[in-house]
Amino acid sequence: MSDVSINSAIREDEAGFGDFFALLKPRVMTLVVFTAFVGLVAAPVPVHPVVGFCAVLFIALGGGASGALNMWWDEDIDRVMRRTRNRPIPSGKVAASDAMAIGLGLSVLSVTMLTLATNMMAGAMLAFTIFFYVVVYSMWLKRLTPQNIVIGGAAGAFPPVVGWLAATGSMAVEPWLMFAIIFMWTPPHFWALALFMRGDYDDAGVPMLTVTHGRRATRQHILIYTVLLAVLAVGAAFSAIGGPIYLAASLVVNLMFLRGAIRIWRRDEAAAEADNFAVERGFFRLSLLYLFVHFGAILVEALLWPYGLGGWG
């Protein structure tokens, strides 16, 4: 008698809880939590802390669910790219079908719970966000068009709108301004990454702008989007979500961001290779700070509002 039959079910690389949690893309989830929270707080309707906490939690869970479904669908790409080959599915720790089940289950749970905790509009918008990210972006357009990042940016820009809807139950211009900031910010952020993560998208066959239109065109696109973003982000200072603090912070960060984009635009590949893409890497890091500063400033303005200090008075 042997113990072969018993041991056949044991796999050395069996997934732990952390591997399943990694399916939810925790780093992306922090951005979702932060921007949804700002959308919720910036709304002109007070929200009970418990309801607000639940709203942000279920929006984050919805974001995580779409992350899991994205990993399930993009398994073949993730396997090829250096940046993603250690994710739970390509590394063999989690089965793709499990990721799909978790993604679908959490999608239903998050939309249902957000609807029950807040209102129908917020639930419907969360459902649309998941649909947009998984079906429109991941399944349809990501492998079809070099503008994939622009479309993906829209998917990532919905959380503040959902947060706002959770608080108010109705639409306004301000959440769409927050949407527009993230939407315009995403392309330069990811194109900078694509410039210094050379080869990854080539190998995976994803039609990234660097692959389809070349690196020169990508540098030009980064500059164009950064200029448009600066106009939009500074302009938002004069809306109901802005104020003097936001204006000052936005001016400083946008000047830094514009300077970075101009430096990227003026460089050629030889110069970039010579310093191992130091400018592009710096621009990518700055882009993370950029979003944090803008949404942080919107949050500060909203928190100061009850004391007569936020906004333009």
Binding site: R11, E12, E14, A15, G16, F17, F20
Partner: peptide, 8 residues
């Protein structure tokens, strides 16, 4: 593996 399963 048992520890990992317990953690899960």
């Amino acid at each position: 593996i048992h520890e990992r399963r317990f953690g899960r």
